[in-house]
Amino acid sequence: MSDLIRLKNVEKRYKNGVTAIYDLNLAIEKGSFVFIIGGSGSGKSTLIKMLYREEKPTKGQVIVGGLDVAKLKNSKVYKLRRKLGIVFQDYRLLPKQTVYENVAFALECIGEKKDVIRIKVLKALEDVGLKNKVHEYPDKLSGGEQQRVAIARAIVNEPKLLLCDEPTGNLDPDMSMEIMKVLEDINKRRGTTIVMATHDKEIVNKMKKQVITLKEGHLVKFKQKGKYEDEAI
């Protein structure tokens, strides 16, 4: 399998002088499911942000799906974003729009046709198990359901890569596992590569996926079927 993501000697230093990532080398294969773990300030979020070009690396190369992210101009960032889906801890839904409209929004923004939008949105909502809630508004849904709407929006454009930044951070353990099942399902059925930053020990240990451990901006471990190892963090 070829690499979907490759990082070469990546360093990220913020303007305030704090270095979040030191000399990081990493390759993530297509179709894999990878956890990025580490304590606060370990650089998890920075790494995710660099993958969708919210942040630029100060040094090195970040290649996502063949695009050199660091060299991408602000006006061309959309080309990268159309290749990936992003899910956040706080869902980031539009409160005044229904579940259907929230998911459709992602396709409307890129100029998709109405009938195509309809088919894709219903498929995505079916994949996350929310087909019966299409006309609900986000505030009528549970946290887990809202996150599933966000996941549906992220996968509706059939991206190769799904980035998740602490997607279960606001959810109780049961709901978290529900989300993980949805993500695993997407990974298996759609073949979408998933990169998820988390500090939820239970999830990492149960899922037995690849685990990248970061500590104070350094890569400590990259293990297949890894576990959440407290001592490494």
Partner: peptide, 12 residues
């Protein structure tokens, strides 16, 4: 913000 995340171009 969401528009940017889902890949809307600046023009859009």
């Amino acid at each position: 913000g969401i528009m940017r995340l889902v890949g809307a171009s600046n023009f859009t």
